[in-house]
C-alpha cells in the first residue's frame, strides 16, 4: 500500500515497527527512532540527527508537519472507506485522557463505530474502529492517560 498526498501517489509507504518508524521507497528503506513528546509532537532520530515532527489523525488522513511544512498524507484505505488505516490496529492520534470506552472485547464492531472518546488539546476526539470485525483487544480504561501513537484497540477483520 502506498501513501498519497493531494490525491497523488508519493511512491512510498511508512509503517511503525516497535519504537521505530520505517519509510519504504522502492527498494530503499529509511528507519527512524520515534519518541513521543506529547500534544502531537515527536522527535525522530536517525544516525544521531534529530528532528521534530507533528502528526494528528483525521477522517481524511494524517495531518503532519515536518521540515517546516504541513501535509495531509492519505492512505489508499482512506479513499475507499473514508475511515482509518484499515489495519485493525487503532492508535491514539495524540496524547490525552480516555473520557469514555464505548465498546467491549469480543464485540462485533463496524468500521465507523466509535470505540473510545479521548480528551486532548481541549478537544473531545472520537476514536473509530477503522475496519469492521471483532474487537480482539482493548487497552484503555476510562480516566487513563494515553500517549499519542500508543496502541489502544485491535480489531480483527473477518477473513
Amino acid at each position: 500500500m502506498s501513501l498519497r498526498s493531494r490525491g497523488r501517489d508519493v511512491g512510498a509507504d511508512a509503517r511503525r515497527d516497535g519504537d521505530d518508524v520505517v519509510v519504504q521507497r522502492d527498494a530503499r528503506s529509511t528507519r527512524w527512532r520515534a519518541r513521543p513528546c506529547g500534544d502531537g509532537a515527536w522527535i525522530l532520530e536517525r544516525d544521531g540527527a534529530q528532528q521534530v515532527v507533528h502528526a494528528i489523525g483525521s477522517r481524511e488522513g494524517t495531518w503532519v508537519q515536518a521540515d517546516g511544512r504541513a501535509y495531509l498524507v492519505e492512505r489508499a484505505a482512506h479513499a475507499r472507506t473514508g475511515a482509518a488505516v484499515g489495519s485493525g490496529h487503532v492508535m491514539a492520534p495524540m496524547t490525552g485522557t480516555v473520557l469514555g470506552v464505548r465498546a467491549r472485547e469480543g464485540e462485533r464492531v463496524e468500521a465507523d463505530q466509535v470505540l473510545l472518546v479521548l480528551s486532548a488539546m481541549k478537544m473531545q476526539v472520537e476514536i473509530t474502529a477503522g475496519v469492521a470485525g471483532i474487537l480482539k483487544e482493548l487497552r484503555a480504561v476510562e480516566g487513563q492517560q494515553v500517549e499519542g501513537g500508543s496502541l489502544l484497540v485491535v480489531v480483527e477483520p473477518p477473513r
Binding site: A55, V73, S87, V90, Q124, I127, V153
Partner: peptide
C-alpha cells in the same frame, strides 16, 4: 511532495479519529 520525514510522521498516529466538539 512530502519528504521521508513527513511520511514517517504519518505512520506515527492512526485510528483516524472523527473529532467531536
Amino acid at each position: 511532495p512530502p519528504g521521508d520525514a513527513a511520511l514517517a510522521a504519518s505512520a506515527l498516529v492512526g485510528g483516524a479519529p472523527s473529532v467531536g466538539r
